[in-house]
Amino acid sequence: MHIEEFATGDSPIHRLDPRTKIIAAIVFSVVVALNHSLSATAAAMVFPVAVIAVARISITKLLRRLILVNGLILFLWCVLPFTFPGEPLYSIGPLEIHREGVLYALLLTLKSNAIILAMIGLLGTSSVFSLVHALSHMGVPDKLVHLFFFCFRYVHVIHDEYRRLVRAMKIRSFKPGTNLHTYRTYAYLMGMLLVRSFDRSERIVAAMKCRGFRGRFYILHHHEMKKSDYLLAGCSGLFAALLLVL
């Protein structure tokens, strides 16, 4: 499991201040999400594609991620063209495909891919910790920032714990099947993970208290706004305005 897959790299995008990137990503997502025009959404794709090109992100890894997301969108394609009321295009037996449904599914597909590409290009190219720093500098409530950070930090540990439990099941010849024994075993596995995570969180808090933690994180590295940051901010602002006009 590698969450920060795209974060290691050295490109103008990687070097940007994460605060600029977060704001640009938010503005872009909101504009794209609120937009109802197909042509404007298609035009919006230019921005994330440009960012990704500049960041030199590996296309194969990128596609692998997009396939995951588009798996969900596939369900929309299975449902929307048939259920959305409108002008019928053609019919398969009793089912009719409607033109509006197809267009709507297409719009949703474009929107989600544009937003995800922008997230990968802008946020994926920063390490999680620098994003956490940026968020706390931007005045996001401490509790939310801590929550985000600890989720990230301990996902690895919980995943390791999960693998350990699965291994322990395997060496005792557990083979998953469609039966009550399997369901019960998986329920135990989930329960065990939950209990263990809870215990661990208590121990982490205790360890932090022992080192003088009183609810505040001090930050060692500081961000700095550079010319390139103002450039990105300007570009994305202009682009967002342009999309709104379209």
Binding site: F129, I204, A207, G212, R214, L220
Partner: peptide, 21 residues
């Protein structure tokens, strides 16, 4: 369990956590 004690991403930040506090 060291896993409970180390929670910052880098060693620098983790060791600095106590002194900063």
């Amino acid at each position: 369990d060291s896993e409970d004690q180390l929670f910052c991403p880098t060693v620098l930040e983790d060791v600095a956590f106590g002194p900063l506090n």
